[in-house]
């Protein structure tokens, strides 16, 4: 079986992967990084979003071997160096941006990708960017609030309040 090597959350890693091994399988099963979730496995829900070379991708719809040599960042790499929550994670906690938490890893990774490109997004831009991240607790309002807060903007009363 071919060996795949990449940098995950700043650490060089390698492991065996078949051609068909998905990046999410490699992260969860080979590396034991189970923070990245498999929700739908059909690239709809976004629970598996990670960053590959700085870009958000659905790790259930990319082969592990395609990330050979890449820099990968997962939810396990989001906390600050001292173990405290990052600004985005803390905002999700402060604004109750999760209920069951299953979608949260993908939500946080998508939020981080959005804020990298667009540091002060509007509410509409946040909702648009989260099109590919599904929350089945219907917690979008608090997720949007959390991302607004993480971007340093005022959390204005938003729809459905």
């Amino acid at each position: 079986m071919p060996t795949v090597s990449m940098t995950v959350n700043g650490k060089p890693v390698s492991g065996e992967a078949e051609g068909r091994t998905l990046l999410v399988q490699f992260l969860r099963e080979t590396l034991g990084l189970t923070g990245t979730h498999v929700g739908c496995d059909t690239s709809q829900c976004g629970a598996c979003v990670v960053h590959v070379d700085g870009e958000a991708v659905k790790s259930c719809t990319m082969f592990a071997a395609e990330a050979d040599g890449a820099e990968v960042k997962t939810i396990e790499g989001m906390a600050n160096a001292d173990g405290s929550l990052s600004v985005i994670q803390q905002a999700f906690q402060d604004h109750h941006g999760l209920q069951c938490g299953f979608c949260t890893p993908g939500m946080v990774m998508s939020a981080a990708a959005l804020l990298k490109d667009n540091p002060k997004p509007s509410e509409a831009e946040i909702r648009d960017y989260l099109e590919g991240n599904i929350c089945r607790c219907t917690g979008y309002h608090n997720i949007v609030k959390a991302i607004l807060a993480a971007s340093g903007q005022e959390v204005t009363p938003i729809a459905a309040e």
Partner: peptide, 9 residues
Amino acid sequence: IGDPAVRNR
């Protein structure tokens, strides 16, 4: 097209 993560691939 699709969503942001899909557009990145």
